[in-house]
Structure formats: C-alpha cells, structure tokens
C-alpha cells in the first residue's frame, strides 16, 4: 500500500482527488444491523463497513468511530445503546493517582471488544480491494485521560496539576500504543488519532498532553510504513502548528462551521502533510439536499485546487441518520471533479 501523500499527489497529477468521507454509522442501515451489535462483534462490524465499500467505494474506509474502545478495555463503565455509539459514563468518584496503579494491572490488550476491532481490521484488509486504504481509529492521549478522570476534571488538572495529568497522559499513550501495535499487525494502512477533547486546550497544553504523546504513536506507525492521522473536532485553528509538529502524515479537520479555514491551514502546513476535510457533516450532509451537497463539495474542491496534499472528506464522522443519497452525491461529485491547475 502506498502512503497517503503519494496517493494524493498521484491523483492530483491526474487532476483527480482522493475521496474519503468519515463514513461508518450509515453502513449500519445498509447492512440491516445495529451500532451496538457492530461495536461488539467483528463479523457484524465487517458486514457494516463492507456494505459501505460495496455501495460507495471510498478511497479510505475506516472502522466505526468509537471513543470508548480503550476506556472500556480499561474497565470504565460504558453503555451500549442499540443505535448510538458506545459511551463511557462519567466517573462518580473522585480520581486519585492510586487508581492509575489499578488500571496498570488490567490486561488492556487482551480485552475482547478491543480485539474485535483488531479482527475487523484483519477482515477489511483481507477482503477489501487493495486500492482501498483500511483505516483504524485510536483515542487521543488527552481524550482518553479525560475519560478516566472526567473531562472537566482533566481540564482543571491541566491548569492546576499539570505534572499529574502528564503522568496520566503518558499512561494512556502506553495503552494506545499497545492497541496501535495490534491494529498495525492486523494490517491497518492508516491509524487516525481521535483527540476531540484536545480542542479545549491552548497550544502549550495541547502540546504537552497530546502532541508530544501522539509523536510516539506516529513513530510506531512509521516503523511499519503506515500513515498516522490527527483528528481534532471543532475549531482547531489554534492547534495546527502543534499537530503538524507531532510528525503526523495528515490532519483531519472539522468543518468551516466550527471556524476551520482550510485554505489558511493549507497555506501554513508543509505540502507533505495531507489535509483531510472538511464538509459539514450535519448542516450539509445530514440536513442538506443532494443538490446542496453537490454544490458545497464543488466549492470545497475548487477552494483546494492549488493544493496537491488534499483529500476530500467530511469534517467529522457521519451519523447514522445521514441520507444515503447525500453520501452518493458527495462521492459522485468528488469522483467527477476535475482539478483545474
């Protein structure tokens, strides 16, 4: 499998674009399954993502986005509504550092649900056409720390007890690296680090608690010649430099509705860092009509015409209720677009 930047450049040289929406949950509808089943059973999960590949043929297919995998493997209470993504419940007791010692005793990487994601990647790699990149997700170090101590508590800790939070993030990174190694062995072509809580931090905190740790995940991926992608939800304009400095191969950025200006980002990042984004998943793809989707995809592609390091995608994950016609409109417009250079 080629690296993402080479593929993006190769498509660009033919005046084409890679088209890879962050697409998972709509496959549940297509496959007649439920999110709960797919997130707990690798065969069902594979059925869901296969249905997306069969119908839309994207250039990258990720597994279902699930920020509870690592936290759940660490024994944190998680709920599984039938058709919503699994959610980690807020801790009802105050965190103390002794709890971290308890978490260290857990055989994190032999957790059944975590391994079901690894098996799904194996099945995707074995069965998908070789020109489709198989993408895995891992939680970001700070986001996982927030799930362990509580999101608000993590924020307060960043300001009041940074040394403590740093230790927790080093621990979460060790867990994420174990998971990443399993995903790489299973054949993942790209590993995307999901750091939604990171958007709440200022640049120096983000660097300390997330980016320096993501750098370690990048190193593990690069040893296997695999791409590492950084995804931060919301307006991450103040964090772009730190994200790039982590050494990731690509940034997956949220929509302009959140404040992300892709053109400004493109002008500021090196051209060997791929930019993935950033059509509004909700305003446009969930609530818009196919014509609006087509028009906004064209506008976005035109905006990025001068940049070879660009992959057409959505700003964030598409929810279950996304109209399938709108995904088709997205794919079709992206595929038919001719870059004018």
């Amino acid at each position: 499998m080629k690296r993402l930047i080479d593929l993006a450049n190769s498509f660009y040289s033919k005046n084409k674009r890679l088209v890879a929406p962050l697409l998972g949950f709509p496959g549940v509808k297509l496959a007649g399954s439920s999110i709960k089943l797919a997130q707990q059973n690798h065969k069902e999960h594979f059925k869901v993502v296969s249905s997306l590949v069969d119908k839309f043929n994207p250039d990258i297919q990720f597994v279902l986005m699930d920020l509870s995998v690592e936290a759940n493997a660490l024994g944190l209470n998680t709920i599984f509504p039938p058709n919503e993504s699994a959610t980690v419940l807020k801790k009802d007791s105050e965190f103390n550092m002794d709890y971290l010692d308890l978490l260290r005793k857990i055989e994190f990487d032999s957790d059944g649900r975590l391994l079901s994601y690894v098996r799904t990647i194996e099945l995707m790699k074995l069965n998908f056409p070789s020109d489709i990149m198989v993408g895995a997700y891992v939680s970001g170090p700070y986001t996982l720390a927030g799930l362990i101590v509580g999101a608000q508590e993590a924020g307060l800790m960043a300001a009041r007890e940074p040394e403590k939070l740093e230790k927790i993030c080093i621990f979460t990174t060790e867990c994420i690296i174990k998971y990443t190694r399993l995903l790489l062995s299973a054949g993942a072509d790209a590993v995307c680090v999901l750091e939604p809580s990171g958007v709440m931090l200022g640049p120096s905190h983000f660097n300390k608690f997330s980016a320096v740790n993501v750098k370690k995940i990048v190193e593990i991926c690069h040893r296997e010649n695999v791409d590492c992608v950084y995804h931060v939800c919301g307006n991450s304009m103040h964090l772009i430099e730190e994200m790039v400095q982590s050494g990731v191969d690509a940034l997956s950025l949220d929509s302009k509705d959140t404040g992300v200006d892709l053109l400004v980002v493109a002008g500021n990042v090196p051209d060997n860092v791929v930019l993935i984004g950033n059509l509004s998943p909700t305003r446009t793809i969930v609530y818009g009509a196919p014509q609006e989707v087509k028009s906004e995809v064209r506008d976005l592609l035109e905006l990025m015409d001068d940049f070879s390091n660009y992959v057409l995608s959505t700003g964030c994950d598409l929810p279950l209720e996304t109209p399938l016609d709108n995904i088709s409109a997205f794919m079709e417009t992206g595929r038919n677009y001719v870059v004018s250079t």
């Binding site: 608000q152 924020g155 307060l156 200022g202």
Partner: peptide
C-alpha cells in the same frame, strides 16, 4: 480572543 482556553476558564469559574 484565544488568550485563555477551557482549563483557565474552568479555574476562573470555580
């Protein structure tokens, strides 16, 4: 104005 972020805001609010 992006002079402070959520952690600092939480501290002030608290």
């Amino acid at each position: 104005e992006n002079e402070i972020y959520v952690p600092e805001m939480l501290m002030s609010a608290r």
